[in-house]
Design a protein around this nucleic acid. Structure first.
Lengths: 232, 232
DNA sequence: GAGTGGTCTAGACCACAAA
DNA sequence: TTGTGGTCTAGACCACTCC
């Protein structure tokens, strides 16, 4: 017996033919009315199945012409950017946040973060089992989050607090590698010659800047993972 | 006059209420039959709209209870991993691939790449306007891609060739930072103390390993970008 | 012009989880 | 038990685009 829906079956049938190479990029897949005949179902059902493949980028639909296997262009992948506190806890390690500095953001800070004045600047370190995992430099727009001004970030990291205050934001990430400055290297307990993973994130809510954060991870202690399974 | 569909309107109405904070995580959004009444349309239309929000992760649907605004948990983002040749060309720079070595993969190679024997190993450098942008170490499974054995990779990078041979694969990425070995630093024309972005990618087709690649980017010359806009 | 996909309707039955 | 969402049907009209 099967617990899968008919729509899923149609979809995975076609997907398997693409993944196996039986259908190659540029090939036309059966018309909707042909699939309707083949599976003996309503057109809405096959339409939903094929539409899902199209949204996943596996096929391309063209009016009057039909539906074709797409040419894979850029590899895209879903990147998980977890909250560090939860990530460390999930790994079974002890989490600790230490505040370095909490002050008004300077003009040059605001420029790099593209955050309007007034804004708060918070520097600190995330530790896993006592080892520095990430150095964080964050700006928070006080016009978007006024409560941040009176919030003490000595005990709790601003990321988790912000998530509660300002849910469902849009964000942009830039991921690169950089060497730490002497001060950063000291905070991370690493040499300045060591490589760091640098993640910078700009966050908006309804188009208004909320926060900017730059996180520096010592090379060997952390890596990001991304899965790419279109159609999953 | 509007060119948007009714489904899109319903969807963006709800999304705007979530994004603006009018509906907060845990709040229930209207039942389908309420939306049907509010918009005066068929249930299938509102169902499609709300289902799209659910797929985007903005809401969570529970039978008998209703549909609720989801709690943002892990930040996820869509990461673009472009073909380097096309990326460099798109930036208006001259692309060049230089082969370092092409040989049979050793046992230790196969272990790190999780590729079955026999396999090919190809090392080379991607240049943009004559400057080394990335060092690449790649393994190709010869059982998955037999043609690779007789393919000369002196002129053309194996990535673009593979994409034509074996389209629509699944992949996993690991992104980190590392220091180059002296040999790698020389190939990239950089000091060993410089930070590198390290991207490792495992690729399968229909569950069978196809290729493994490790790319090393000098820190300042490249960065990855990821957008996070659920509901777009 | 002809035929595709895009959207929508007005029903229906079912599985499941909350009350 | 009850009501929600999950799935599906059998139509319909339309817009677009390839021939």
């Amino acid at each position: 017996m099967s617990k899968t829906t008919l729509e899923q079956r149609i979809r995975s049938d076609i997907e398997a033919r693409i993944r196996s190479g039986a259908l190659r990029p540029g090939d036309r897949i059966p018309f909707e009315h042909e699939l309707v005949a083949a599976y003996g179902c309503a057109r809405a059902t096959v339409s939903k199945a094929v539409e899902a493949l199209a949204k996943a980028g596996l096929v391309e639909r063209r009016r009057k012409a039909g539906t074709f296997v797409a040419h894979p262009h850029v590899q895209s992948a879903v990147l998980a950017v977890p909250d560090l506190e939860k990530l460390i806890a999930a790994r079974g390690e002890a989490y600790r946040w230490t505040l370095i500095e909490q002050c008004r953001a300077s003009a040059s800070d605001l420029e790099t973060g593209d955050i309007p004045s007034p804004a708060l600047r918070i520097d600190g370190v995330h530790h896993a089992d006592g080892v520095p995992l990430a150095l964080e430099m964050r700006l928070i727009s006080l016009s978007a989050v006024p409560l941040a001004a009176s919030q003490p970030f000595g005990e709790r990291s601003p990321g988790a607090w912000l998530l509660e205050q300002v849910p469902w934001t849009e964000a942009r990430h830039e991921i690169g590698a950089a060497n730490p400055t002497p001060e950063e290297a000291a905070a991370l307990d690493m040499p300045t010659s060591g490589a760091c993973l640098e993640v910078r994130r700009w966050t908006w809510q309804s188009g208004a800047p909320v926060t900017y954060v730059r996180q520096l991870f010592p090379g060997g202690r952390y890596h990001l993972m991304a899965e790419f399974t279109p159609g999953a």
